[in-house]
Write a protein that binds this DNA or RNA. Structure first.
Length: 480
RNA sequence: GGUCCCAUCGACUAGGGGUUAGGUCGCCACUCUUUCACAGUGAAAACACGGGUUCGAAUCCCGUUGGGACCGCCA
């Protein structure tokens, strides 16, 4: 298959999956599946100082939980591996040497301090800060001498001057950049590791990547990459730079202004389907007057095209996510929802082994939940030993004559029932109405308050069933 | 500061020469409901500005303004 589409998601293993990364991963996955191509995971761990233990496993499991899978990668394997860049060091060195030999790269020996000073001066002059290419002037003898004396070195790209690099980005369109402002990028660091730029180009080429789909923050380094491809005599893959996900103040989505890790959202009880649906619609939409808001992964795969990716950034709007998550919670299969809600019932005083009860409670309260971690806010009425009333007005209402009459009647009715259900509670309360003449607000309000301690909440019959006969009787008897 | 990118309701967006500029979230009102919520109905709410091109511009071009990203031996 020569025309097979191959894309890659290439995160650095920093420990968690950023919402922005999630969207990049999603778009890559969607694009690959839409075209029946391959989705590849590559770990960009060339920065030794940023290694985090267990990060890769965490990353893969987070993504897989959301339904984003890979056809090749560190766990899955594949014939283009290894998929850890730290296992590919020899490969990068080889191509770096090629670049050195064909005159497209050179040695440089500046210290960190020298580079800092260079930038400081440039800043003073109001120029773009970049390496001043002074290493290009070193003679072969000078270079050999420095090398021989063991001075630390890096290898830099020799950017051809006075040219214009053009490329056609699949979402941004035509972009051109003058090579004079392209930095002589470091290719190989003094620790022998490649930089992102070199490793990226080499790997994308060797792994036969056809489309590079990544965040817009990379767009300014595309010319460097193109120059490397060119210097190595390789074809440049198609590029698609997707716009950023933004904070409410329009800056790049960052930790300071809320949660940015996918794990945080999962932990709070956002459903994976809602998260995927919401993220997909951030910066992409099917267009053509389509007004649908809810998409399954399958539907997304079918509809996804790069042409429909937005050109401008999108603010991450938590209100809309909440609304969408609530919609999913309301319509989710109740048994499945019950299972995934179990952790959120821990510590509420409700026996989580009683799945039937959990299910009933969830059915009653799911309409209130924007996310599962709000469950404890709504289950208090089901575990309270007794109802405490701070409000004197409510107390008065419960001790009113009509309330007493209604309570007495209701108690009698319920005592004849074996097992209290929503249905027989309903008929019991109906009987109370006809027998006592107490009805409407003056009936329902006191009962609600007596049972739940609150003026509002889920439907009374449901509450009664969940509370059970004994508990309902107890609560009612307090007021007669 | 330099380079690049971007610009429709508060937010996500549809529309891409002729539309009452449409939908969704949020906000507000009303209806339904014993309550809250849900649901339903309705309202308020946008083409950043200035020049062109054109019979006609939100739509095409240029400029201005505004916003953002990048400018590391991080990715």
């Amino acid at each position: 298959m020569t025309n097979e589409i191959r894309v890659r998601f290439a995160p650095s293993p920093t420990g968690f999956v950023h919402i922005g990364s999630l969207r990049t991963a999603l778009f890559n996955f969607l694009f690959a599946r839409h075209h029946e191509g391959k989705n590849i995971l590559r770990i960009e761990d060339t920065d030794q100082s940023r290694k985090v233990d267990g990060a890769v496993e965490n990353l893969i499991s987070s993504l897989e939980r959301l339904g984003i899978t890979f056809d090749e990668g560190p766990v899955t394997g594949g014939d283009k591996g290894p998929y850890y860049q730290s296992d590919r060091l020899e490969i990068y060195k080889k191509y770096c040497n090629d670049l050195l030999e064909n005159g497209n790269a050179y040695y440089a020996f500046e210290t960190q301090e020298e580079l800092d000073e260079m930038r400081r001066l440039q800043q003073l002059e109001g120029k773009q800060t970049m390496y001043d290419r002074r290493g290009r002037d070193l003679s072969a003898d000078e270079v050999n001498q420095k090398l021989a004396s063991g001075i630390p070195y890096v290898i830099r790209l020799k950017v051809p001057l006075g040219e214009e690099v053009r490329f056609n980005d699949l979402v941004k369109g035509n972009i051109k950049i003058d090579t004079d402002i392209v930095d002589d990028q470091i290719l190989l660091k003094s620790d022998g590791f490649p930089t992102y730029h070199l490793a990226n180009v080499v790997d994308d080429h060797l792994m036969n990547i056809t489309h590079i789909i990544r965040g817009e923050e990379w767009i300014t380094s595309v010319p460097k990459h193109i120059l490397i491809y060119r210097a190595l005599g390789w074809d440049v893959p198609q590029m698609a730079h997707v716009p950023l996900i933004l904070n409410p103040d329009k800056s790049k989505l960052s930790k300071r202004q809320g949660d940015v890790a996918v794990e945080d959202y999962l932990k709070k009880g956002y459903l994976k389907e809602a998260l995927v649906n919401f993220i997909a619609l951030l910066g992409w939409n099917p267009g053509e007057g389509e007004e649908k808001e809810f998409y399954s992964m399958e539907e997304l795969i079918k509809a996804f095209t790069l042409e429909r990716v937005q050109t401008s950034g999108a603010v991450f709007n938590i209100d809309k996510l909440n609304w969408m998550n609530n919609s999913y919670i309301k319509s989710y299969d109740i048994d499945a929802l019950t299972e995934m809600s179990v952790p959120f019932f821990e510590g509420t005083g409700i026996d989580t082994n009683d799945r039937d009860k959990l299910k009933k409670i969830l059915s009653a309260i799911r309409v209130y939940l924007n996310k599962l971690d709000e469950i404890p806010n709504h289950v208090g009425i089901f575990v309270n030993e007794s109802v405490v009333l701070d409000d004197e007005k409510l107390r008065e209402l419960l001790t009113a004559d009509s309330s007493k009459i209604a309570f007495e009647s209701l108690i009698k009715k319920i005592e004849t029932i074996d097992s209290l259900t929503a249905d027989n509670y309903k008929s019991a309360i109906g009987d109370v109405q006809t027998e006592t003449g107490v009805k409407g607000k003056s009936l329902f309000k006191p009962v609600r308050i007596a049972l739940s301690g609150s003026e509002n909440g889920p439907e009374l019959p449901a509450i009664a069933e969940i509370l059970g006969k004994d508990k309902v009787l107890d609560l009612l008897k307090k007021w007669i």
